[in-house]
């Protein structure tokens, strides 16, 4: 019953506070899930020179978020040092992405991080109701990975063969920080992108290898992909706002139709086909079948 959403601005528009659109869509879907929330917003012009490493430190059972900005030369060493500490959960490594997440409602996330004012070309959001892992800040979505920077995933459903996929990824030397099945998606896609760099192929590989009912949205610095499992067991919908209600034009994707309504994305409404990724590119809005 999680809720997911995404926005891809038309014409590479990065001056609009995309956070307010995500906020509206998340608020309209809050009824679906109330345990934790999170967003990942791309190309807001913040982290151009330095890498931003976000992590939670677990102190006496409580998670406190920290951020470190490091030069590309120091990135590997810093990551190595952080991963040696069992109480640290790295949530993202980014140059072009801001990933914020915590337990609570979307209004709590807004109060803490002022997400509504964040600009960017595209972004994703998530509302979580915990099923297979605990309600903690590190288990909130979006999930990212240290395998490659600037990748984020939000997920609704269950990867039932999570254990098998996780073991295979760990065998290949990847580090996973949580016991949440959604983290496996982020690491799997990153692993595929490192091999061949093709997002569509990476998603097809995941559809082939992952089992269970799921829909997920994966975002990279220049694209957003929506993916449903081969049986289409979890719903998802996307639509277009051609520029109305004081908004510039954009594509919106969400679990519930109400979220598209909330931001006026009610044109060209479609549902992605099961087992076939739909990819929206930042520079060229194009839907792949």
């Amino acid at each position: 019953m999680c809720g997911i959403c995404a926005i891809m601005m038309d014409n590479h528009n990065k001056d609009f506070p995309i956070g307010c659109l995500l906020y509206k869509m998340m608020e309209s879907q809050q009824i679906r899930a109330q345990d934790s929330t999170g967003v990942a917003i791309f190309n807001n012009g913040e982290n151009q020179e330095l890498y931003r490493i976000d992590y939670f430190r677990k102190i006496d059972g409580m998670y406190t978020s920290f951020t470190e900005k490091v030069s590309p030369e120091r990135l590997d060493k810093t990551l190595y040092e952080l991963t040696q500490n069992p109480n640290i959960v790295i949530t993202s490594v980014a140059k072009e992405m801001t990933l914020l997440k915590d337990i609570g409602l979307v209004r709590d996330l807004e109060a803490k991080y002022k997400i509504r004012s964040i600009q960017g070309t595209h972004g994703i959001g998530h509302l979580r109701i915990a099923t297979s892992s605990r309600v903690t800040a590190d288990n909130a979505h979006p999930f990212s990975t240290i395998a490659m920077p600037d990748i984020a995933v939000v997920h609704n459903g269950e990867i039932t063969n999570y254990s098998k996929l996780r073991s295979a990824l760990e065998l290949q030397g990847h580090r996973l920080f949580t016991r949440c099945d959604s983290e496996v998606i982020a690491v799997f896609i990153a692993d595929q992108l490192l091999r061949h760099g093709n997002l569509e192929k990476a998603n097809y590989e995941l559809i082939k290898n992952a089992d269970g009912p799921f829909t997920y949205i994966v975002a990279t610095p220049d694209s957003i992909a929506i993916v449903r499992d081969k049986f289409g067991a979890r719903k998802c919908i996307f639509g277009y706002n051609p520029g109305s209600n004081d908004y510039p034009s954009f594509w919106a994707m969400a679990t519930d139709l109400s979220a598209l309504d909330s931001v006026g994305a009610t044109f060209h409404v479609e549902t992605p086909q099961p087992g076939k990724p739909k990819i929206f590119y930042r520079d060229e809005i194009q839907i792949l079948n």
Binding site: T160, K164, S167, D211
Partner: peptide, 14 residues
């Protein structure tokens, strides 16, 4: 019954 569409997805965690 375990939620798998593929027999080969069984793992020790099941």
């Amino acid at each position: 019954a375990l939620g798998y569409s593929d027999f080969h997805n069984l793992s020790p965690s099941d």
